[in-house]
């Protein structure tokens, strides 16, 4: 999704958010990621005013007070954390681990195929279809991508073919490279 994203061209407008909308987003985030509760004040301080950057292809980025991108979403989809945020607080998103061979493909933006999640080096945490997941890798400490399950983990095991996780944001893509917005 962010493969061809470029900060300069892709962001069409930046808006200051009304405080009521901010509250709405906060509660939505907490609903989606209950484990975030302990640290949400670090990520999005209550007193801060956040902004939303509207981008091409119906992408919205949530910027915190310092202009860092913290969450993004596509159309009315769920808010997903950016990788930089996820590296700081890796615990609040469900993790799925792919095997070593899949890393290079994911790093060039490919969706994760089922066999990459079921082979010996991989490891899945049970989750429903449509869950936001962090894609980890065999032998690596940090997440390398963020995606959405297109099948439930049970189905992935059963079917073992085709796309299992749709990759939205991966290391070194346009969003990763984007600098904090002033």
């Amino acid at each position: 999704m962010f493969k061809k994203f470029e900060e300069k061209d892709s962001i069409s407008s930046i808006q200051q958010l009304k405080s009521s909308v901010q509250k709405g987003i906060r509660t939505k985030l907490l609903e989606a990621y209950p484990k975030l509760e302990t640290h949400i004040d670090l990520i999005l301080p209550k007193k801060d005013s956040y902004r939303i950057a509207k981008c091409h292809d119906h992408i919205e980025l949530l910027l915190n007070g310092t202009g860092e991108q913290v969450f993004f979403r596509h159309r009315d989809g769920p808010w997903m954390p950016t990788l930089r945020l996820l590296h700081k607080f890796p615990y609040f998103v469900t993790m799925q681990q792919v095997d070593k061979g899949a890393i290079r493909f994911v790093l060039s933006g490919a969706n994760v195929m089922c066999p990459g999640l079921t082979s010996p080096g991989a490891c899945m945490t049970p989750a429903e279809k449509g869950t936001v997941v962090a894609i980890m890798a065999e032998g690596k400490e940090h997440a390398l991508a963020i995606g959405l399950l297109t099948l439930s983990t049970e189905d992935i095991l059963k079917i073992n073919k085709g796309i299992g996780i749709e990759t939205y944001h991966f290391l070194n893509d346009g969003l990763w490279k984007a600098k904090p917005v002033k």
């Binding site: 209950p34 640290h39 590296h87 607080f89 615990y91 049970p126 936001v132």
Partner: peptide, 30 residues
């Protein structure tokens, strides 16, 4: 709609990743 993992599971996973060391957030990544 978002499935929630058992807390133990998450903990285990985090421990796996960070060698069972007490983690303070935010984690600093090099």
């Amino acid at each position: 709609m978002h499935a929630v993992n058992e807390p133990d599971e998450i903990k285990k996973k985090v421990e796996e990743c960070h060698g069972a060391v007490e983690v303070t957030y935010p984690i600093e990544v090099k």
